[in-house]
Nucleic acid binder design. Sequence first.
DNA 1: CCATTGATCCCCT
DNA 2: GGGGATCAATGGG
Length: 200
Amino acid sequence: MSESPTGLLPRAFFARDSVEVAPDLLGCKVTANGVTVRVTEVEAYREDDPASHSFRGPTKRTAVMFGPAGFLYVYFTYGMHFCANLVCGENGAGAAVLLRAGEVVSGVETARKRRGPKIAERDLARGPARLAQAMGWDRDDDGRDMIGAVEASGTPVAALAGPRTGISKAADVAWRFWIAGDRFVSPYKRHPKAPAEAAE
DNA sequence: CCATTGATCCCCT
DNA sequence: GGGGATCAATGGG
């Protein structure tokens, strides 16, 4: 995008390198199943990336990632959690942006019903699996078209970049993006087996 | 720090 | 075809 987009984001917005799309998604609103979140934190993944599910080529699980941009890629992990991505790039690129955290700006009661009655508003979608749960996403939502469900904020946000969370490979690339100072960004946690951070 | 929990996928037979 | 390590996480100590 040459200019900062407004309104509903078209498929062309997503049909770019996930590393370019990711920071542009900060501040955007995603709506599904009665809940709207303002995105505060994302991570980019792509096929030439050892930490990406698409790294070893298409599989049954990652089929959606290799399809056209603008669709939702939902995966199940750790035997109990779902996480959601927006597919990016040209058809077949195997790229996506993981939605890592957000602020529930509409449908708070619906989100709390899914997350639990005692969950603080701040924690409703602060974390990728929490966000997916708040949105009511599970394996049935894998492959769902998200065009029309993602809206630009219209107001610029201050983006910061740093290493991704929870991965053991390619932990040095700064493909995690978040809104500076936003309290709805998830707590950073490095993968236990990730190599030590590079010295300055 | 650690357990949870099961799908996936590598790699060897 | 199958054993087993790994895992884009969370919640509780």
